[in-house]
Design a protein around this nucleic acid. Structure first.
Length: 195
DNA sequence: TAGAGGATTGAT
DNA sequence: TCAATCCTCTAC
């Protein structure tokens, strides 16, 4: 069951980030499907400094963030890594959830091949790495998550006691907003990115 | 139009 | 701790 636009278009990115844990991200590149269960996310809101769309600032890069929830926002970080986000909220808001780590589920051989690994261990434990393994590039920026190239599927909900909230990674420039506990991981899950 | 820096990663 | 690497944003 594919997650509906209504799932993404709710107002609170933090709630959506929590609920995305356990969901399955699927990509289809030329008929080759790969899939992974989400084990780590981060919420970003236009109301705080950690967000590219802070203060409603729209640029060519983050334009997709201002579209309706349910689009993919993919951008290049450090000139090397494509980072995959899900746009949330209604048009013009600029909220998103960053997918930071996955547990490989389908097409694991293909994922290993893409990153030149001989074991699935840790090939998706980080936002740049999971994009490489899933074949996610900036070509998917702006993709509609009800389409045929990338989407998310619903799964059984994750129990509240399994979810750990902590500060987000790598946004020291955001000042006190960097302390917001908007990073969500599954407790004791081996696929979560390194601390 | 030039310069700085980044929602990362892996090696040292 | 540090370099890789290049796109984006800001300031001039």
């Amino acid at each position: 069951m594919v997650l509906s636009p209504e799932f993404y278009q709710r107002k609170n990115a933090v709630v959506i980030a929590r609920q995305l844990l356990g969901k399955v991200l699927v990509t289809n590149e030329d008929g080759i499907c790969t899939a992974g269960r989400i084990v780590e996310t981060e919420a970003y809101s236009y109301r705080e400094r950690g967000c590219h769309a802070f203060n409603n600032r729209m640029t060519e890069r983050n334009r997709v963030m201002f579209e309706a929830g349910g689009h993919a926002y993919v951008y290049l970080c450090y000139g090397i890594h494509s980072l995959f986000n899900v746009v949330t909220n209604s048009p013009g808001k600029g909220d998103a959830v960053l997918i930071r780590a996955l547990e490989p589920v389908d097409g694991v051989d293909k994922m290993m091949e893409r990153v030149g690994a001989d074991t699935p261990k840790r090939i998706t434990s980080g936002p740049g790495k999971l994009s490489a393994a899933m074949g996610i590039t900036r070509k998917l920026n702006g993709a509609w998550l009800q389409g045929t190239s990338v989407w998310l599927e619903d799964e059984q909900s994750v129990g509240r006691s399994l979810i750990v909230a902590s500060p987000r990674i790598g946004i020291d420039y955001a000042g006190e907003d960097a302390l917001l506990p908007w990073r969500f991981t599954l407790r004791n899950n081996p696929w979560v990115s390194k601390p």
